[in-house]
Nucleic acid binder design. Structure first.
Lengths: 345, 345
DNA sequence: GTTAGCACTCAAGCGAATCGAGTGCTAACC
DNA sequence: GGTTAGCACTCGATTCGCTTGAGTGCTAAC
């Protein structure tokens, strides 16, 4: 037995209905709501076939059918109607977006909350991420008598800052001179490389040995964890409005997963270089998420760094709507980060 | 009728028990578990009195009593045993804390997750906040041919950064010179004041008019919202483990309140200058939180800025434990931010 | 003032009965 | 052969009544 056109249409109707209502859908519903000129009995036969093919599951014998992960996969891959991409609310909100851009973090926070508001699911936004950020400028900014702020500008545009202690009195001109030397020496190198270059400089620049030593420690400590990326999350509470999460225990595990941002980031980030990903249920590879789906899209910055935006929802997700929203938001962010610069005019 | 010593003792026992178990407590429980040499009948009479005095509520006639907000207030104010302040787990974790301090945001994020892990409630940490941050250093760091990063160090230690566009080619020495001039001129002033000073400078420094104009816009845009503070939250999912939140709808409103960080910040921040605050149920002034309590403490930085740490839990909260944890964590943060500087050695 | 005793209340838990949505199967129909 | 009407059957969900037991309030005796 194999899929024919009619089975496809029926499957699609079932999925559409289930996505809409969230309750198992029966044969009568299909034959009445979606008029395909077939009686419920015929639908029933077809549904039985579809179940045998692995596209439908039956929670218990006297309930309707629900789509399996395999069905959603098929749905997303081929039979989803890609819907009206334009959405009024989206347009307005996305306009509201432009022009209030401050720092990177604000942007991705905002993006997450906009996406979650539009989709009514949980949204996650990861900042742009390159392979290895390369240093562009190093500058020591005096903060107090005995402390300076280290500002490192990398090509990702990300700034790491933290204070280090100054050995003795150093005026701002001295600091500037050191900054210049450092910039000259380190520009274009990664943090890890910088840690290899510095010892040489320490040898040469005797008078500032102590300061440089401090800087060395500073870099060394950060070279591994590229300043743990700020993960923006929005709409976690949305999930609780779906019957899938009326079980509090389930909700709790979901929420605590959302709280461990590192883990979440690695889940969302994905491995491939795909611009658009849809992972359904078990495909997520996360045991806690067997009945969730994750849709991700990417955006990029002027310097070619890639960021990820993702939506997490129940497998019964409005895939087409989510995908179109992610699509538009991806473009939006790409424009924002590469069109102008990320600042005010 | 008024409170006597015995009533106090009984009330305390009731509250202790209710905090522990979460179920209405009956007269027999008190007379047996907490031996006060009285029969359940006597306890019953006293409980009836306590109810009349407004310290106890009765969910329904044949259930035990639960403490009212007034009872918790009394409990916190006078009859709480301030418990063993030292906690083994706390010691270990707080040690684990020291020595991994990076940026401010990391610190408060970390603090929130530590507090929530220890208390099993929801923790909120607000960054140090002064009345009006005063500028200490202004520095323009070249990022690319036509853009520079504006780094402003204020006495709060908070850095605001964002890129602005550069008019023409400007080498880093020029930028440094301008930075020096700006620092000299603006040091000690608030952002708002800076916006009044700048026009004068623009007049004088003709050649860099365009750049300064950009900077002016930059400051103007930020002077109102002091870079919306980063609010750290931890353990929102903890709340779902309490029977108080087995109702999903309740949980949802709570969580969505936690998501609107601005609102949350203003709730936590409180108005007074109290070092320690306990707000119980309706005292929070937030309708969504009638059956929550909020305990806050403060910490301070070297420059005297005050930050807030808070715990949100059910009214049936382990007040003494929470307070001692907040107390210790407050000292911890104060040490961290004022003892050394917030960096590595 | 304290306590034992007792009648009373009421949520929670349990099981039987009912309901109804939905299926699978068979036989008739086109 | 595919489609449909009809019917018996299944099983979760709902309802109803019953029982249980924790807990109270009151009264009378100590």
């Amino acid at each position: 037995m194999e899929m024919d056109d009619r089975k496809m249409k029926i499957l699609q109707a079932i999925i559409d209905d289930y996505i809409l209502t969230g309750v198992p859908v029966g044969s009568r519903t299909i034959s009445k709501k979606y008029d395909m000129g077939l009686s419920s009995a015929t639908i029933r036969n077809e549904m039985s076939d579809l179940e045998e093919l692995g596209y439908l599951d039956q929670p218990h014998v006297s309930a309707g059918r629900i789509p399996s992960a395999k069905a959603y996969r098929l749905y997303v891959d081929s039979l989803m109607k890609t819907g009206r991409i334009r959405d009024d609310s989206l347009e307005t909100v996305s306009r509201h977006f432009t022009g209030r851009v401050h720092q990177m973090e604000d942007v991705i926070d905002h993006a997450a909350s906009v996406i979650s508001a539009l989709t009514r699911y949980t949204a996650v936004v990861l900042p742009p991420k390159g392979k290895q950020p390369r240093m562009q400028t190093v500058q020591l900014v005096p903060v107090s008598r005995d402390a300076a702020l280290v500002v490192i500008v990398t090509d990702t545009g990300i700034v790491r800052d933290s204070t280090i202690r100054l050995p003795g009195d150093m005026d701002s001109d001295t600091l500037y001179a050191i900054s210049r030397a450092l910039t000259e020496e380190l520009r274009g190198h990664t943090l890890a490389e910088a840690c290899e270059i510095l010892p040489g400089m320490i040898q040469r620049m005797r008078e500032n040995q102590e300061l440089l030593q401090g800087l060395y420690g500073f870099l060394n400590e950060r070279k591994e964890s590229p300043s743990r990326p700020h993960v923006a999350i929005g709409g976690t509470s949305n999930m609780l409005s779906y019957p899938e999460y009326s079980d509090v225990e389930k909700a709790r595990t979901f929420l605590s997963l959302m709280e461990t941002r590192d883990k979440l980031a690695s889940i969302i980030a994905g491995d491939g270089e795909m611009a658009f990903t849809v992972r359904i249920g078990p495909e997520t590879g996360v045991p806690e998420m067997v009945d969730c789906s994750i849709v991700t899209a990417t955006y990029s910055t002027r310097s070619g760094q890639q960021g990820t935006i993702g939506v997490i929802g129940p497998t019964r997700m409005q895939y087409s709507r989510v995908m179109s929203i992610l699509n538009i938001m991806g473009h939006q962010l790409t424009d924002l980060f590469s069109g102008g610069d990320d600042s005010n005019e």
